[in-house]
């Protein structure tokens, strides 16, 4: 079957979502005008939406079942997320509930919704950034890669024979490069990775060139390459960690949200006069 163009697919998805939201809004208004209980209709719809959203996580845990492309599931998840958020705003009398339980539930919903929208943003931006970096490293092997880079850097220092070069590069390695290669990236870098550190180190190495002979400059070039490789590794680590942390946060909160929403639904039906 011929793939639908991305723009067309987005138009269709957005139109269906908006149409569904509009239909639910009209039903809620109609139900309210006829002295019915619109909160039941919108609440049940929102709960069904939440269960539908959770199904994506279930689908990911059973990849071997022929349940369709994960990409399609993700697309549906995104549009259902928009739809459920809109239904939430139709459902609630105020954005953050007044009661303790209701307030907790609304904060949970808003947290999951906001994290979902953030996830949508980073899932659209981070893959491009990751793809732009040389090398694809598995997250669990990043420590190994970090250690290997550190070992390689140490080997470069040990191979220096010229005393002047050894003194200059050895001193710089001991004071600057060795701490850089042997330590984990700082929290600040993980949160907001940038090229400042790389540029600083490469600039300092460049400054050493005037004190070095040819062999020394070759060694400095290897250090510069190791700095770039390590920085790329840290950059990948930061971005992957961001994606994985978001996913854990979004998934865990979603499960709590489902539990609390079910309790809310049970209470609402019990106390409906």
């Amino acid at each position: 079957m011929k793939d639908i163009h991305f723009t067309t697919r987005r138009m269709i998805g957005a139109s269906i979502t908006l149409l569904a939201i509009a239909v639910c809004w009209v039903i809620a208004q109609w139900e309210s005008a006829r002295l019915g209980r619109p909160a039941i209709a919108t609440g049940v719809t929102a709960l069904i939406g939440l269960f539908g959203l959770v199904l994506l996580g279930v689908r990911r845990r059973i990849p071997f079942w022929p349940l369709g492309n994960a990409s399609i599931w993700t697309q549906v998840h995104i549009y259902v997320g928009f739809f459920t958020t809109a239904i939430y705003f139709i459902h609630v009398p105020r954005i953050i509930g007044d009661g303790i339980f209701e307030c907790f539930l609304s904060l949970l919903f808003l947290s999951v919704s906001v994290s979902g929208f953030y996830g949508l943003f980073i899932s659209r931006t981070l893959p491009k950034k990751l793809a732009a970096i040389e090398g694809q490293h598995r997250f669990d092997r990043m420590v190994w890669h970090r250690d290997e880079i550190a070992k390689t850097a140490s080997g470069v220092v040990e191979k220096l024979t010229d005393s002047a070069t050894s003194r200059v590069l050895g001193t710089f390695y001991g004071k600057v490069l060795q701490p850089f290669f042997s330590s984990r990236p700082s929290l600040a870098y993980v949160i907001a990775p940038n090229g400042n550190r790389r540029r600083q180190l490469l600039g300092d190495l460049k400054e050493l060139d005037r004190y070095l002979e040819s062999d020394g400059r070759t060694a400095a070039g290897k250090f510069a390459a190791l700095v770039r490789r390590r920085d790329d590794l840290d950059y990948q680590f930061a971005l992957q960690l961001r994606l994985r942390t978001w996913l854990v946060f979004h998934g865990l909160l979603s499960i709590v949200l489902i539990i609390v929403a079910v309790v809310h639904a049970v209470l609402a039906f019990r106390f409906t006069g």
């Binding site: 598995r138 290997e148 390689t152 070759t218 290897k222 190791l226």
Partner: peptide, 30 residues
């Protein structure tokens, strides 16, 4: 002149996706 001809070991390929633990050559687990 920059020299990017580095001798870095190849990444091990004995990972088992889904495992909670991972061991290095010395048997250190993480």
């Amino acid at each position: 002149m920059r020299n990017d001809d580095l001798e870095i070991a190849e990444v091990p390929t004995d990972d088992r996706p889904g495992d909670g633990w991972m061991f290095d050559a010395e048997g250190q687990g993480s």
